[in-house]
Amino acid sequence: MTRPLPLDGICVVEIGHSLAAPYAGIIFAHLGARVVKIENAAQGDYARGWGPPFIDGASALFHAMNHGKESISADFSDPACTQLIREFIVANADVVLQNLKPGNLDRYGLGAKDLTELCPSLVYCNLGAFGATGPLRSKPGYDPLVQAYSGMMSIVGHADDAPSRVPVSINDMGTGMWAVIGVLAALRGKDRGDRERGQVIDVSLYETALAWMTVPLSDCLAGGPEPARIGSGSPNIVPYQVFDCSDGEILVAAGNDTLYRRLCNVMDLPSLADDPRFATNGDRVLNRKALIALLEVRFKQKTASDWLANLEAESIPCGPLQTVDRVVTDEQTVSLDILRETPDGRTRTVALPVSFDGQRPPLPGNTPGLGEHNHLLTKPPARDREDDLLRQECD
């Protein structure tokens, strides 16, 4: 981009692994922040091994979540090393992100209380599993566990399916997004002078899952029926799902009564448009099985391309069910220029899904090797040679 990125000049220290904190970190990096990643010296971020596929010894997943960052490897059990990390944070960081098990960093003087006392302006964000309060506050967790616990897994799939998860780490990545939102709000408050001090922000996978579940939970609180597994469909809108055609599958989203009537006309099913069982969306939701069975028979009588052409001609939202390999070569994907290469050409991944004045931020850099930037823990001018030796031990 020709102008500075929005977070140019902000330094974020990420003491995180796997996905939630690293995803928050990569968002900050794409927005122009300097992101310094603190990794366990023994093996680094666990996600380095989450493959195949691998690119130069690290998983493609790790490259996707950590390009453009700097990496410091640390032995947290070494007081000299943790002291140098504290000094680095106090001297450089505007923001700290951490998603280690609750209490872990407190043992090393790197928790929110210690660091905000040393650096009152610091914005410190904890990314946890189940939240900062409650009986499960100290319980570790991964995305599938939270999908199961939050009720999300109970509504994924079809009625007779075994339990299945949303096959992307939606709560990890969502928690990373909430972390960014919370941190940006805190930084904005500081810019406005509302707060002279920084803030401690808490987000978690479980709270993120509850936020994704806003509609099902609200339906339940309103006395609605127990949510059912309805495959690609919606519990609140009908017809709004995938249909089988004679040679493939398409998704049709007739999201209101007008679109439903247009759909009936396109499908040459005028009787369904006038059937009192299907007159309103509420009626169609109550009589879902009867309506879907009738539509399914009709959709199978033509090809997917025929249906798509006819539906699009009447401005009825629809589209093909694409596989991942087709998505990466899809004309719309290509035109958005959202799949980018890192500067060294090793990694091709997804850029930030945001543009500023028509320009998408570039990928912020290459993926660091474990401990590649340990030289950042340099001796400040006022420190003596003994402290410099401690730096060498940490390296």
Rank of each mutant, 00 (worst) to 15 (best):
A228C: 07
I230G: 02
M213H: 09
V203Y: 10
S232Q: 09
I201P: 00
G223Q: 04
A228R: 15
S232Y: 05
E207I: 06
G224E: 02
Y206D: 06
I230N: 04
W212Q: 14
S218Q: 15
G231F: 03
T214K: 03
V203R: 14
Y206N: 06
P227I: 05
I201R: 05
V200G: 06
M213R: 10
S232A: 11
D202N: 15
G223R: 02
L217Y: 11
G231V: 00
G231Q: 04
L217E: 01
G224S: 02
S204Q: 08
I230R: 11
L205W: 07
V203K: 09
V200W: 05
Y206W: 12
A209V: 10
R229T: 06
V203H: 09
L217N: 10
G223W: 02
C220E: 13
L205H: 00
G223T: 01
Y206I: 12
M213Y: 09
V215G: 05
G224M: 02
R229L: 00
A222H: 13
S232E: 02
D219K: 09
A211I: 11
C220R: 13
C220A: 14
E226T: 14
A209K: 05
L221H: 11
E207Q: 15
P225S: 08
A209P: 05
A228F: 05
A209E: 08
V215E: 15
S232C: 00
P216I: 04
V203I: 07
A222T: 07
V203T: 15
W212R: 01
I230C: 01
L217K: 04
S204P: 08
P225G: 01
S232L: 03
P216L: 04
L210W: 05
I201Y: 03
V203F: 12
Y206K: 11
I201W: 00
A222E: 12
P227K: 02
V200D: 06
A211W: 13
R229I: 00
A222I: 06
P227D: 00
V203S: 10
P225I: 04
A228Q: 15
M213S: 09
D202I: 06
S232F: 05
T208E: 06
R229Y: 04
A209C: 08
I201V: 12
D219C: 12
Y206S: 05
A209S: 11
W212D: 04
E207H: 15
T208Q: 09
G231A: 00
A211H: 14
R229Q: 08
W212H: 14
D219F: 08
L217F: 13
I201E: 02
S204A: 14
G224D: 06
C220P: 01
R229G: 01
L221T: 11
T208L: 06
G223P: 04
W212I: 12
G223V: 04
D219H: 13
A211K: 10
G233R: 06
L210G: 00
G231D: 02
G223M: 03
S232K: 01
L221I: 08
P225C: 03
P225E: 11
